[in-house]
Design a binder for these strands. Structure first.
Length: 417
RNA sequence: GGAGAGGUGACAGAGUACGGUCGAUUGUGCCUCCCUGCUAAGGAGGUGUCCUCGUAAGGGGACCGUGGGUUCAAAUCCCACCCUCUCCGCCA
């Protein structure tokens, strides 16, 4: 949720919203609706003040004066009710419009859409296409069985099996240790949450079609541990010296992948259920941009140590989504496709999500909405398949990156069974 | 799943039988000051959040789990929901 006061007072804030693709018209509509609602609020509150005073007066009045005073108060009440319902409508109107406005883009974010990203750096030497792509070698070695999974659950499901399972646990444990060393608090959050949590975390209403719903219990399966991590301090006011709070969550993630028919249908790249290690930071607004760089640094370190070529891009304003003010994507080289594909990303949501969550920080300057950031530490499925391709050996097996060997006791991934 | 009890400010804990003087008694904590070799004890005053009008001083409004309702007036009455605790059942 956007900051309406800043929207009407700060030209830079407003232009940041426009760079995200919001029309000048939609912004003026919000501001006009807000001005109207504020004006009505003043009138309504005056009326309510009168009404309150009249009621108090009745309480003090002598018995013989009461009836007349009650009748007068009844008239006030009728007027108040009309003003209140008009005000409620005006406020709903503002909220509906305001929810649709995106968080303004940061000054360092390039203009444009999906193809207008800025490449920040490329690391490592992109390799040639391997003998088998990730789906083929996963199938051949029995590490990923989509055929049987589809028979059971439908398309976009997979069994992860054999050495790949050991490698998954190694990845999780390695990444967790790395983050615990950096003082991130490990968390396993609930993956089923109520609707209001999905709204506050910013996934509803926009991404509702991507989310699995358990109608009978009115619960929703989260698409990322971010939901649970964002909710930890919902409605809380933290002391400034408690910040930053850094969390690292591990959870299964569930996505309906509606509207992606025919896209990335093979293997583990795009499935309905996968596991992910996710970072989340609650930061003082003054230092949140430093925290974004920290998240990026962690992500880079992970892929560098996994010995895979990658690049980092800054996503352009028009491709940011509603909540992010700035986002880095880390893309790993996928040899079979001879291109970089997104494996992790990190964003600064500034105060956009925290405002709805009611997560605030109390400092000497007073109370302000804090900033939240999130970043993928490791999307397990995509990382596994990147390893399958980048570390494929000529004999048809797969090298385990050095850093993971102590965690799984394997040097190479071989056939299952 | 069944039965019962309860959700009040940073915390503890009144108020709810009889709706008005209750944004809310009191204690602890916290802040300022006084007293005081130090510490402790003691004394005085202060101490919620959000919205809004105002340059400011200051004014107004909302908030006693959440959302509705009754009423001139609701922490107090009614309804629904959420949560916590105890007992029973069941399970890991």
């Amino acid at each position: 949720m956007i900051d309406l006061r800043r929207l009407r007072e700060e030209p830079d804030y407003r232009s940041g919203v426009e760079r995200k693709g919001a029309s000048a018209q939609s912004i003026s509509d919000v501001l006009a609706a807000d001005a109207n609602a504020r004006e009505q609020r003043v009138g309504t509150e005056e009326l309510r003040a009168k009404s309150n005073a009249a009621s108090k007066d009745i309480g003090r009045a002598a018995a013989d004066e009461r009836q007349a005073k009650i009748e007068a108060a009844q008239i006030l009440k009728t007027a108040l009710q009309e003003a209140e319902s008009a005000l409620a409508a005006a406020e709903t109107h503002v909220a509906d419009l305001a929810l649709q406005l995106p968080n303004p883009a940061h000054a360092s974010v390039p203009d444009g859409g999906e193809d207008d990203y800025r490449v920040e750096l490329e690391v490592g030497q992109p390799g040639p296409a391997p003998a088998l792509n990730h789906a083929e070698i996963g199938d051949k070695l029995g590490l990923v069985d989509t055929e049987r999974a589809v028979r059971m659950s439908g398309s976009r499901f997979a069994y992860v099996m054999g050495d790949a399972v050991l490698l998954q646990f190694a990845l999780v444990q390695w990444v967790m240790s790395k983050l615990v060393q950096r003082k991130f608090v490990p968390v396993i959050p609930p993956v089923l949450v109520r609707e209001d949590m999905m709204v506050d975390a910013g996934f509803f209403p926009t991404d509702r079609s991507q989310v699995y719903e358990l109608e009978k219990d009115e619960l929703f399966l989260v698409g990322t541990a971010e939901v649970g991590l964002a909710g930890i301090h919902r409605g809380e006011r933290l002391e400034a010296e408690m910040l930053p709070r850094r969390y690292v969550g591990y959870s299964s993630c569930f996505r309906r992948e509606a509207g992606t028919y025919g896209k990335d249908t093979q293997g583990l790249f795009r499935v309905h259920q996968f596991d992910k290690v996710e970072m989340f930071v609650y930061a003082n607004p003054a230092v949140s941009w430093d925290e974004l760089e920290l998240l990026r640094q962690v992500e880079e370190e992970i892929f560098a140590e996994l010995e895979m070529p990658y690049r980092v891009i800054t996503v352009a304003a028009g491709d940011l989504g509603g909540a992010a003010a700035k986002k880095y994507d880390l893309e790993v080289w996928l040899p079979s496709e001879q291109r970089y594909r997104e494996v992790t990303s990190c964003s600064n949501y500034t105060d956009y999500s925290a405002r709805r969550m009611g997560t605030r920080v109390k400092s000497e300057q007073g109370t302000e909405v804090m900033h939240t950031l999130n970043g993928t530490a490791c999307a397990i499925g995509r990382t596994l398949l990147a390893i399958f391709e980048n570390h494929q050996r000529t004999d048809g097996t797969i090298n385990v990156p050095e850093v993971l060997r102590p965690y799984c006791g394997l040097d190479i991934l071989g056939p299952t069974g």
